[in-house]
Computed example of a mutant assay.
Amino acid sequence: MEARDSELEKELNATLQARSELGPEYESALIDSFLEKVDRRLDETLDRRVRRHLAEQQIAVTRRARTPQEPLGHFGERFGFGIISLILAIALSAIGVANAGIEGLAVAWLGIVGVNAFQAARSRPLFRHSKARAESDWED
Rank of each mutant, 00 (worst) to 15 (best):
Q17H: 11
A121L: 09
A29W: 09
A55P: 14
F79E: 00
R63K: 15
I90G: 09
G80R: 01
T67Q: 15
T15Q: 10
N13C: 04
L46W: 08
E25M: 09
A55H: 11
R133C: 01
S123K: 00
E21Y: 07
Q57V: 01
S136C: 08
A14G: 06
Q69H: 03
G104K: 03
R66H: 14
L22K: 14
A94D: 12
S33F: 02
R66T: 15
Q69I: 15
T45W: 11
R66Y: 15
F75E: 05
E44N: 13
R48G: 12
A94R: 12
A91P: 15
L16D: 00
F79S: 03
I87G: 02
E70Y: 09
A117D: 03
I112Y: 03
S93C: 04
G76V: 13
L30D: 01
L88N: 01
L88P: 00
V97N: 07
N99E: 15
A98C: 08
I95K: 11
E139M: 13
H53Q: 09
L126D: 09
F34C: 04
A89D: 04
S6M: 14
R49S: 04
W138A: 13
P24V: 08
I102S: 12
A120S: 08
L42M: 09
V107W: 04
D140I: 06
L42Y: 05
R78E: 02
R133T: 10
E7A: 13
F127N: 05
E56R: 00
S130D: 12
R4S: 09
E36N: 12
L54F: 06
Y26C: 05
S130P: 02
R63A: 09
F34V: 01
E135C: 07
V107R: 06
R49Y: 10
V38L: 14
A117Y: 08
R124C: 02
T67G: 13
Q57W: 14
E70F: 11
F127S: 06
D43K: 07
E27W: 01
I84G: 02
E27T: 04
Q58S: 07
V50Q: 11
A89I: 01
L30W: 01
N99R: 15
D39K: 13
A60C: 06
A14E: 10
Q17Y: 07
R41Y: 05
S6H: 12
A14D: 13
A121N: 08
A121F: 08
D140F: 07
A117H: 02
F75C: 01
N13H: 07
